[in-house]
Amino acid sequence: MELYKNTIFGFYREGDSLIHKIDPRIKIILLIMIIVFISFIRTFSGTVFIGLFLLLIMKLSNSSFFYILKGLKPVLPIIILIWIFQIIFYIGEPGNILFQWHFIKISVLGIKISCLMMLKAISIYFISSVFFLTTEIVSFTDAMERLILPLQKIKFPSHEIIMVGVIAFRFVPTLVEELERLMKAQIARGANLDRGNFIVRAIKLSGLLIPLFISAYGRAEDLVLAMESRCYRGGEGRTRRISKKLKIFDFTSFIFTVLFFSLTFLTIRYFKLP
């Protein structure tokens, strides 16, 4: 019965590695770029290159492979289900059909493409995990704000949106803690929250929602007062506590990534790898 202390929020792990040191703005751009690159990969040889890249990144960031892998466990059934569906319902050129039963067709090409999709999805999971393991939620949201700040010019409320995001992130652990407290109080009086089938459990958990909402509203009210009493009036003209400048190292990491993937694509194209 430990939710709070056993849950990892935002994944961040303190550290001093090279990946930790990359400016979060650059890191966000890199993450998006890498995800795009990965989705452009169409061959198995390409996934080998991605694998190499991921191994390098994990080595540089000192993150444990098995630890990230463990995080995959809860979503594994869904991934496998999607994989199976893809194999069964793949509609492509009529290639070598191995097996056919009514509308279910299993083709070599279908298996190939769905395996590739799986590998790519898992790679994206890994690279995002490394990102969140090495980036503090605070510096992540700060960097996000800086990246979309120019949109303020076209009346896009970037500061406000990020502020809402920051507060939401900030309150996840608090609410989980609150939920844990409520659950323990009910268990202590003989409630069996972890017994019964799925529906029974859902009904029991719904009894926790009302007190949880009430306490969340209470907290929100306090927060509003605390912010207003410190003269918070939105983003206009606010200065920053930490001002970060991009360093040569940040550009190097950027160039390295672009170079790596360009070489990957060129190699695959040039040698016509499968």
Binding site: R181, L182, A185, A188, G190, N192, G207, I210, P211, S215
Partner: peptide, 20 residues
């Protein structure tokens, strides 16, 4: 477990979390 939890009554720090 039920019998044990009846025997050992627990009062939590914040009554708000206990009263729902």
């Amino acid at each position: 477990l039920k019998e044990l939890r009846r025997k050992v009554a627990m009062l939590f720090q914040h009554p708000d979390s206990q009263l729902f």
